[in-house]
Amino acid sequence: MARLGTRYPSSTVNALNPVVDPARRTRRDRSTATAYALLAPSLVGFAVFLVLPIAAVFALSLFEWNLLTDPEFVGLRNYRDLAEDERALKSIGNTFYYVLLNIPIQTVLALLLALVLNSKIKGRNVFRVIYVLPWMAMPVALGVIWRWVFDPVNGGLNRFLDLFGVDGASWLNDTAWAMPVVASVNVWQYTGYTMLFFLAGLQAIPAELYEAADVDGASRTHRFFAITLPLLRPAMLFVLVTSVIGSFQVFDTIHVMTAGGPAGSTATLNYQIYLESFTQRSAGYGSMLAVVLFAVIAAITLLQVLLFRKRTVYDFS
């Protein structure tokens, strides 16, 4: 029985308990110094661009700060205020709604595309590039173009629907439609990118397994559920963790297409952080929301990893 992901090469284990002679130590010290010197630029970047701002956000969540004057320490007041902040609570609900609209469709579509483009069809490399293109384009520029497409009067979509006598909705100004529309734009944008990881995962599956299945006379469906899907688990874990995190942090598409409207129906938690911190000048309160978002994402990521770890146990014997 092998447990994927928890096996270390035996040399690593030995390296943890080394018997070191002095000459070797100096040599190692010197090479350690070189390693740190080489790492320094990226470490400085990591500290300045990540650690410091993250620490600042945690600290600021205990303050009231309007960006213009000195922050005022308020302890846990921001956290207590959250309980009665309908807007913020609604934005948390909006975030989950968005993630649920976004992730299942995007993941299933990406997997289907990867399966198709992993088979030997003509021009598959061209298709692979085409599906990845939306991910390569700037989200803001795409948001602007999609806003035109969804314009209720002059937009391409409603003009198209008009040809069939269908009255299109006023998509981005309709509280029921705005979120599904924004989510579908992001599905369109990120499906190709997600597909790449599934493609890589598919190509890593040993061909012998399929050959053996053929010998045993397994059906295509059976092969998919017994071989492909289980062996895609590492890829699936990576895709789900990263895309769920990305989905919880959606900002640019919403900012450009709806600015959180109408009536706050597309204001996700991350967008609410922006609104509170910058348009309302409540940077402390916004930081508190950022900490909450961090906690939510951390909890869900942990849950995903635990779920997958429990099941990522294969019996090859």
Partner: peptide, 14 residues
């Protein structure tokens, strides 16, 4: 408190 603000600003503006 001015030092605080400078620290907050520095952290965010670094």
């Amino acid at each position: 408190m001015t030092r605080l603000r400078a620290a907050a600003a520095l952290a965010l503006a670094a």
